[in-house]
């Protein structure tokens, strides 16, 4: 009998974020059903349900702890974004001192400083845009790692919770950009493309940063 290989990414996700003790039997159950002709979408749906039911259950066990961890993680991300935005704006101002008035008026200074480095429709700014994207990605990896090393036994759950809220926020931003594109706003298409790239890349980087920071002994959360 030839066995179909189950979706690798889904199985990896379940192994990382499912319960330690039952992982093997759960994956076996899914694999068995997959061999019976179930599709990849079914497999992914089951994996996501298993992982998020486990996450929900763990959050329920100590809501205050998880709310605090989520707020701290968002603050960390915001702080790092702000710092990288200031660096980018400083670089930009050094290169184009004549445009500082425009950015202060349009974007505010320095809260939305990151926009200074993200006007891809202007060819002269592509290198700053690339630096901006790189800093964004680095920020995400750092956040993932900090969450992993600072959240103790709950590190995987906190990481997953942050990734979920981050993806929701990015999806919201993407929807806003789609509206801007429809309204023909300048640069909206470029920002939309960035959001579309960020949507799968951001969680991937958070996981990469997080996985590197987790100690092998960290217990997974139970569902």
């Amino acid at each position: 009998m030839t066995l179909r290989s189950a979706p690798v990414a889904a199985t990896w996700f379940l192994k990382q974020f499912g319960s330690n003790t039952e992982n093997e039997s759960v994956i076996g159950d899914l694999f068995e059903q997959y061999q019976r002709g179930r599709g990849s979408i079914w497999y992914w749906r089951q994996v996501l349900a298993i992982v998020f039911m486990g996450l929900f259950r763990e959050i329920q066990s100590d809501k205050r702890l998880f709310l605090g961890a989520l707020i701290r993680t968002w603050c960390l991300w915001g702080g790092l974004q702000f710092a990288s935005g200031v660096v980018l704006l400083a670089i930009y101002v050094l290169r184009h001192p004549e445009q500082i008035q425009f950015y202060v008026r349009v974007y505010g200074f320095p809260l939305l400083a990151l926009h200074a480095g993200m006007r891809p429709s202007h060819p002269a700014e592509w290198n700053i845009s690339l630096l901006s994207v790189s800093l964004n990605l680095l920020t995400l990896a750092v956040v993932g790692r900090v969450v992993a090393v600072s959240s103790g036994n709950h590190s995987k759950a906190v990481l997953l919770m942050f990734v979920t809220t981050f993806v929701a926020a990015t999806a919201g931003s993407t929807a806003t950009q789609i509206v801007q594109v429809i309204r023909n706003q300048p640069d909206a298409l470029a920002f939309l493309l960035m959001d579309l790239v960020a949507l799968p890349l951001a969680p991937a980087l958070l996981f990469v940063g997080g996985m590197r920071g987790l100690s092998p002994a960290s217990p997974h959360f139970k569902h």
């Binding site: 039952e22 039997s25 759960v26 159950d29 059903q33 349900a49 298993i50 039911m53 486990g54 139970k222």
Partner: peptide, 28 residues
């Protein structure tokens, strides 16, 4: 009785789809 057979049994009896995750959550 194991995850798949429990889920099959409930699906056959109720006629609705049962997520394996719900079964694992309940058995735990």
């Amino acid at each position: 009785a194991y995850g798949v057979s429990i889920s099959d049994e409930i699906e056959e009896t109720t006629g609705g789809e049962v997520l394996l995750g719900s079964v694992y959550d309940a058995v735990n």
